[in-house]
């Protein structure tokens, strides 16, 4: 990445903070009293059984979901629809979705340009930036193609480039490889690996355990809307035989991962 390592501007500091955050869908509690601090430049993997609140957790960070109790801050600013801070937060936070969500009526290049142009970056600058990030995800040759002309893995790489074009300080990944055919998972993980090396803050919901082990500073295991473990990967993997982790790791092993 060309931009400076965000952790290099002094010592690491709390960048994202959850303080007693709870969220309900009706009477169903999705997040229960979450406390979490993420430093600038940290790479966090969130994992756990489905329905445990992992996706909701990261969707709260950029205001795609609202929450009822507690407060989430990004760069010191509370994420709040009521306070109208969400647009400001989204300037710092990029997001990649499970189902890519590329705009089907735009080419890969246009997908990457639309965000910056809307933020009054000039068309020329937006194009240069888009081409730069498309080359970083090795999609230069496909820049003029429409999403339906691309494979799932290629679409997801374009989606990553699209998010990076806004030069975010944090990247959120919501199960970026789980909608992909197995043979395409690798190309997306490679791109994410390289991204991790640039020192950008990353929060990634994934079940790709070897990827997690390679890049994570901390791994967060969630179940039933709570954080049960928040440890470095060595610790998580050494404790895979205990408690709620057993079942999960057995399940992952069943899938041959």
């Amino acid at each position: 990445m060309t931009r400076a390592d965000p952790s290099s501007d002094g010592k690491a500091k709390a960048f994202i903070r959850f303080q007693g955050v709870s969220k309900r869908f009706g009477s169903f509690k999705v997040l229960k009293d979450i406390h979490l601090t993420i430093q600038s430049g940290e790479r966090i993997i969130v994992f756990g059984p489905s329905g445990s609140g992992k996706s909701t957790l990261i969707r709260c960070v950029n205001g795609l979901e609202d929450y009822q109790d507690g407060v989430i801050t990004v760069g010191g600013v509370p994420v709040s629809r009521a306070l109208g801070t969400v647009p400001q937060i989204r300037r710092k936070v990029g997001m990649v979705f499970q189902h890519f969500n590329l705009f089907p009526h735009m080419t890969a290049l246009e997908n990457c340009m639309v965000g910056p142009v809307a933020r009054s970056v000039t068309e020329k600058e937006a194009r240069n930036r888009a081409l730069e990030f498309l080359s970083r995800v090795r999609m230069t040759d496909h820049a003029a193609k429409y999403p339906n002309e691309l494979s799932g893995g290629q679409q997801q790489r374009v989606a990553i480039a699209r998010a990076l074009c806004l030069q975010p300080q944090v990247m959120l990944f919501d199960e970026p490889t789980s909608a992909l055919d197995p043979e395409m998972v690798g190309e997306v993980l490679n791109v994410m690996n390289e991204l991790a090396d640039t020192g950008i803050t990353m929060i990634c919901v994934t079940h790709e355990m070897s990827f997690a082990r390679r890049i994570a500073d901390r791994m967060i295991f969630m179940e039933g809307g709570k954080i049960l473990y928040d440890e470095p990967p060595e610790v998580i993997f050494s404790r895979r035989g205990e408690g709620r982790l057993v079942e999960f790791f057995e399940h992952v092993a069943d899938r041959g991962l």
Binding site: P87, M95, F97, H105, V114, G115, R119
Partner: peptide, 27 residues
Amino acid sequence: IPRGQYEAAETIGLTYWEATFKVILPQ
């Protein structure tokens, strides 16, 4: 139009009208 289209438009910083005219209505 799938909800993901709105969410993607939102997260790349489009306002309601930008999302409507650039992303949603063409589709």
